[in-house]
Amino acid sequence: MGPSGSGKSTLLHTLAGLDTLTEGSVYIGETELGSLKDRDLTILRREEVGFIFQTFNLIPTLNAQENILLPLSIAGVKPDQEWYGKVVDAVGLSDRLDHRPSELSGGQQQRVAAARALVSKPAIVFADEPSGNLDSVASGELLDFMRTAVREFDQTIVMVTHDPIAASYSDRIIFLDDGDIVDEMTDPTPDSILEQMKHLGA
């Protein structure tokens, strides 16, 4: 968490291999990202990283199922049907799989994106303000699913947000300001986060 301009998104992008570092290094598993060529980095993103963006998460010409399976189809890999079924059930979209993004609500679109992030069993999922554009109900559904993914599927998720309620779904919060880590919190609640933020702001 952190205020606008604190470097949250930049950190996320460099961690995820979308942006390159000017100094320092990033490891995903055993792999150091800085040494990778574009092609290897792309393949690493496809196999080891899942993404949920704030908006425009889905390819408009593909239906929900195709969007969920996108990283696997790009790789030309057959999906693990059992795992796919589990994810789709958990995300609660079994009956909307043949719908195009334009036929889904914002919340449903974000949940499709979340399912896509999980389907390739990545080492880590990065979520950049995933609920930023959603109302509280849809936001709750999405965050519940993300929490389920962590609890039941042992999925690591790194999320950037400035919403204390969204942040309260996490196990551990790192506070950023001006590009520096300024604080850290485990087992947060909305109230404790708000308290902490007031403190930081002052």
């Binding site: 792309t42 393949i43 993103r45 996108l70 990283p71 790009i74």
Partner: peptide, 16 residues
């Protein structure tokens, strides 16, 4: 642009 960016982010290589 955004669509292509998304495809690249989720793993589409340049050749694809």
């Amino acid at each position: 642009t955004r669509e292509i960016g998304l495809l690249r982010a989720v793993g589409m290589v340049q050749r694809q």
